[in-house]
Nucleic acid binder design. Structure first.
Length: 465
RNA sequence: GGCGGCAUAGCCAAGUUGGUAAGGCAGAGGCCUGCAAAGCCUCCAUUCCCCGGUUCGAGUCCGGGUGCCGCCUCCA
């Protein structure tokens, strides 16, 4: 069965075939680095991570580019408010962004181009558009003339004549001195509010519009036509629509073949908003004591196209589920004897897992396949009938599936303090002396200090709660 | 006003071309255990927002409602 993706362009699931066999070139809209990424942003990045990992799992050579938007209205505003220079402000949040990715176990893309490193390329692209008659200039700013690109709207399926300009209530009319309200800026002439943020270029003194960086950098690193472009659903219009207009007007070629958009995340059934105080960053959750991998689980385990609801109850459930996998791995690692293997179950699990993800990244189905396998393997271990080789193969399976999802990794080994080990030993002595009251008291003490004690066939084991 | 998405057990959430409701969490009972924990077994949706229709058969198709959500110029 081929991989199929829901392509926003056609609004249908299509078999995925890259332009160049065996090689996938993809671009994903990255962070605007003026703040810490919130869990909604992270959900999208996790979906894209799953996408690239699954393509690699299926044998594709993936070349993935994610931009860093480091010049833009909100950033400039933040600079004004804090008095911090653009570069140092954005550098701080770029670092934070990569820290978050690492904590969540997100694989690195091949390239992370920053907008401010590509001003000359953007100028060139704008000049090309100008030469081709797609632009006009007002007061030093250059705009894309939408009337020269009649295909506009193909992605979002908006009928431009029916768009109600300003319906979202977010448009500041003063901001748009364009001929047509729908035209968008390619280059913004310098304004005093921009402070020290400007470039002296052939187009004059100013800065690029937001959309142009994605057209420019994606085509620079991936070519004028490439396979996959992703982003949050909110970027579909106008951002991605504008990217298409800029790119295709400049090259005359199809820009992107498959567009994949992730749905939004709500928090406790409410839209994230400052007034509700429910915009969480990864570091907020970690500060509350949550495991980043539990956050990964909570954010990745709902199909990307499905609106998802983040709840603390769900995060707890993710933690418990993650622990189930971790305990399972530890149990497998302890298997030594002879017995049956799990060849058939492994084959079934991996096939169902792969089939599910091939079907537009059906992560729920993939996870379900893994739990069927976990139960079967546990059953065999309960009967003491799993061979060491079988256990080894089961662990190898988990490693393969972990390479795709990042959900089945080995637990981090907790450093157990000597004081805790002493208590464990003391309890063992008490048990041997049949002083169970004392033994239970010690276990309660361990619990209160954040450790769970389990008596296993191989002796007592402590782990973090 | 326009466009789009979603409604499946207490919660989260899958359900290809219609064929008789995955999985996880929580809960109940049992096995195991000195007691636990972990694990395993059993139970937990005559039913998939509502009303019609097509069909031998619909969560899945068609028509009509209801509710929630998103986008409509720079929010992933």
């Amino acid at each position: 069965m081929p991989i199929r993706f829901f392509n926003t362009l056609s609004r249908t699931k299509e078999p995925f075939e890259p332009m160049e066999p065996g090689k996938v070139r993809m671009y994903t809209c990255g962070p605007t680095v003026y703040n810490y990424a919130h869990i909604g942003n992270l959900r999208t990045f996790l979906f894209e991570d799953l996408l690239r990992r699954h393509l690699k799992y299926r044998g594709f050579d993936v070349y993935h580019v994610m931009n860093l938007t480091d010049v833009e209205d909100k950033i400039i505003r933040a600079c004004k408010e804090t008095g911090e220079p653009l570069k140092s402000l954005t550098a701080k949040y770029v670092d934070a962004f990569f820290e978050d990715l690492d904590a969540l176990g997100v694989e690195r893309a091949e390239e992370y181009p920053a907008a401010t490193d590509h001003i000359p390329e953007m100028v060139e692209l704008i000049k090309t558009l100008r030469d081709r008659g797609h632009t006009y200039e007002i007061d030093g700013s250059i705009y894309f003339k939408l009337s020269t690109f009649p295909q506009y709207g193909a992605l979002s399926h908006f009928d431009m004549d029916q768009l109600q300009s300003g319906a979202s209530g977010r448009v500041d009319s003063d901001e748009y001195a364009t001929e047509d309200a729908r035209d968008f800026a390619l280059w913004k002439a310098y304004d005093e509010d921009d402070g020290a943020v400007f470039w002296e270029t052939e187009l004059g003194k100013g800065r690029p519009g937001w959309h142009i960086e994605c057209s420019c950098m994606s085509m620079k690193y991936l070519g004028e036509s490439f396979d996959i472009h992703c982003g949050g659903i909110d970027n579909m219009f106008p951002h991605h629509e504008n990217e298409i207009a800029q790119s295709e007007a400049a090259t005359g070629k199809q820009f992107v073949r498959y567009w994949l958009h992730s749905a939004h995340l709500s928090v406790e059934n409410k839209k994230m908003s400052k007034s509700l105080g429910n915009i969480y960053t990864l570091r907020d959750l970690v500060a509350m004591g949550h495991d980043p991998l539990a956050v990964r689980w909570a954010l990745i385990s709902t199909h990307y196209k499905q609106p998802s609801n983040f709840t603390f109850e769900g995060l707890e459930a993710a933690k418990v589920t993650l622990n189930r996998i971790r305990d399972f791995r530890i149990r497998l690692e302890g298997i030594r004897g002879e017995g049956s293997d799990l060849a058939e179950a492994i084959e079934t699990c991996e096939r169902e897992f792969g089939d599910a993800l091939d079907d537009d990244l059906n992560i729920s189905g993939a996870i379900a396949a893994v739990f069927e396998f976990v139960r079967e393997a546990n059953r065999l271990m309960d009967k003491d009938d799993l061979s060491q080789e079988g256990a080894r193969q089961a662990l190898a399976l988990l490693d393969r599936l972990n390479a795709v999802t990042g959900l089945f990794s080995p637990p981090l080994v907790d450093e157990v303090p000597q004081s805790i080990l002493d208590l464990v030993q003391e309890r063992q002595d008490a048990r041997r002396a049949k002083d169970f009251a004392r033994a239970d008291a010690i276990r309660e003490q361990l619990t209160s200090e954040g450790w769970v004690l389990e008596d296993t066939a191989d002796g007592p084991r402590v782990k973090r709660t």
